[in-house]
Design a protein around this nucleic acid. Structure first.
Lengths: 132, 132
DNA sequence: CTTTGGTATGTTATAACATAACATTAAATA
DNA sequence: TATTTAATGTTATGTTATAACATACCAAAG
């Protein structure tokens, strides 16, 4: 990989799979989708994911052991991102605004903590599923 | 189990392991600690953990795939709990106050979402480790 | 007392998620 | 071209979690 803008072949393939829909996928789901493109082993997926996460192009959802494409220009600049995950339709809303970063910085201050990684995930029922 | 105050034998054993220190343990670490007490299979641990989590006596840390005893009287009454986890000493601070519940309720309102389960986890360096 | 039904438990096997260790390929440049 | 560096491939294994089925225990109904 020469820089953060160009993707290697495997990275592009993984990015394409995650980019097709805004839904979380496990590494093994991605692997299965890419067998036709020559993928054979989990590491091929995990290595690409690691890079993509480093670039801020993909997020890991800890509570699902799954991955999702970032739908912002970039989340790196903000203080953090919150994921709101519908248990019924599996749709994920990605929230990354001042309320999130203020909450996180307040929490860090209160606990005298230097955070390097944060995870905020809500599970429940989204508006569309609630109405249905 | 007759009620939420009494624990079954296995539940008490698992609770004891988690209660001994305020540090997160994986299900398999717990299993190993309980082999001397007759535990032989992961399910014995997972089933006990499930009950203890339901009672609010234990929390699951999603980002660690680990479990920790609740160090409040009860976290059930609040809107949620945030975990602040030091990557160096592994100490976990459990924060469950208005700032957390207000943040979560605000986020739910903004995203038109009914949350049934939340996870807030920060990783980084705690004050003690920073100074050291 | 004994049958019935619920809850807890035990056991085996396997699914699902993740990484270590090492071999190979390919591209960049001295 | 020789060197080295990044990317990739491959095998094996480690780690986390649950499915499926069997057994034990106890309490209430008959």
């Amino acid at each position: 990989m020469t820089n953060n803008f160009e993707l290697s072949n495997n990275e592009r393939l993984v990015m394409d799979v995650l980019g097709r829909e805004n839904s979380p996928k496990s590494a093994y789901m991605i692997l299965d989708e890419l067998r036709g493109s020559g993928f054979r082993a989990p590491l091929q997926v995990y290595r690409a994911l690691e890079k993509l996460i480093g670039m801020g192009r993909v997020h890991r959802l800890e509570s699902l052991n799954a991955f999702i494409a970032c739908n912002h220009i970039s989340c790196e600049k903000t203080g953090g991102t919150a994921f709101v995950i519908c248990n019924r339709c599996e749709h994920v809303q990605e929230v990354c605004d001042d309320s999130v970063s203020l909450f996180l910085s307040g929490l860090a201050k209160k606990t005298k903590f230097k955070a390097s990684k944060t995870s905020i995930e809500l599970h429940g029922i989204c508006d569309a599923c609630e109405d249905a």
